[in-house]
């Protein structure tokens, strides 16, 4: 180990100079293991191994009483593909496709709202800009359950939006605007808008406005200005925003659980059902693997264009909510 370090071999074998300190490579090794060992062991035992166990569990089946029977079959994958007890039905595939679709729609809506929002914030003068920025940061940290709760109140049967919809004949008198796609999308977009807006703002704030002026002087249309002058400059923030919006919204279960019904079920809800209600852990594990594969596929697709690794920290903070 010692030889691979920047330290030079010392006068006696086994001695190295490491960052100005004369020490033995054994002492260095002990120090490294002593410091990094316990947390690495923690992460391995409680994160890496359980994730691998999910893979093994996906090959098992559910016993008669909800227990796990290790039978090493591909039964769960077949079920996922729709081959159930009663012939082929695409229900689970629908849910997977819907997860993709809801995540895509949420991301697009967030992009459409985040560009005007961040441009507006970036063009505010000094103190007003800080105030606007705080207005975006606060909902970023708002608990997702608290947010869903608020939508339940405002979309409730007696609240003005539901009354308006009833007056227009869109819903029955005295009905609520949830559960349904409208409530789900309102919940999703309001949850993830700060996730899109904050990284995007970091790019918009550094925008070179002269390029936009130049484009305008050269009679570029609005679409051309956006495509040629704005998009290339804001792409770093935009791609982080897309990742931290798309990936967790695909795995969402709180918003769809509280604001949606059976018709808005996502793969996250299905996973939760298998573990909480159906007690079918092996199938839940297979679904988790499917979600993981979807996540990695999307990350690979989204990151292919970007050479450098995204800022792990900022992105990590942002991806917690899902």
């Amino acid at each position: 180990m010692g030889k691979k370090t920047k330290g030079k071999p010392g006068p006696r074998s086994g001695h190295v100079v490491w960052r100005g300190e004369l020490t033995s490579s054994l002492a260095l090794r002990l120090r490294a293991v002593g410091l990094a060992g316990p947390p690495l062991l923690w992460l391995t035992l409680l994160l890496a191994v359980p994730c691998l166990m999910l893979g093994a569990l996906a090959l098992a089946t559910r016993g008669q009483y909800g227990e796990v029977v290790f039978s090493f079959t591909l039964e769960n994958l077949k079920r996922l593909a729709g081959f159930g007890l009663y012939g082929w039905s695409p229900n689970f595939l629908y849910i997977i496709l819907r997860s993709f679709w809801v995540a895509t729609a949420t991301t697009v809506l967030c992009v459409l709202l985040a560009y005007p929002l961040t441009f507006h914030v970036a063009t505010r003068p000094g103190r007003t800009r800080v105030f606007w920025l705080i207005l975006i940061i606060v909902p970023f940290w708002t608990n997702v359950v608290v947010r869903a709760y608020a939508w339940l109140l405002i979309l409730g049967p007696q609240a003005p939006p539901a009354r308006l919809a009833a007056a227009l004949g869109l819903i029955r008198d005295g009905a609520a605007l949830y559960p349904g796609p409208l409530a789900v999308y309102l919940g999703m977009v309001s949850t993830f808008l700060p996730f899109m807006a904050l990284p995007l703002y970091a790019s918009v704030e550094r925008l070179n406005w002269e390029i936009l002026e130049a484009a305008k002087d050269l009679y570029a249309s609005r679409v051309q200005i956006f495509m040629q002058a704005i998009l290339p400059q804001t792409r770093p923030g935009l791609s982080v925003g897309v990742i931290v919006t798309f990936v967790p919204s695909m795995a969402m279960f709180v918003v769809t659980d509280l604001l949606g019904g059976a018709k808005t079920m996502l793969i996250g809800n299905l996973i939760q059902q298998q573990f909480a209600q159906a007690r079918d852990w092996p199938f839940g594990a297979a679904l988790s693997l499917a979600l993981m594969a979807m996540t990695l596929l999307c990350l690979a697709l989204l990151r292919r264009r970007r050479r450098q690794r995204p800022g792990g920290h900022a992105e990590g903070v942002l991806s917690r909510l899902g």
């Binding site: 166990m53 852990w281 792990g312």
Partner: peptide, 21 residues
């Protein structure tokens, strides 16, 4: 890779894995 795992893995999968552990 290990350190970045919680950043990449969706919360619900981590939750399920922990529950299983």
């Amino acid at each position: 890779l290990l350190i970045n795992l919680p950043v990449v893995v969706p919360d619900i999968i981590m939750a399920v894995a922990l529950a299983m552990a």
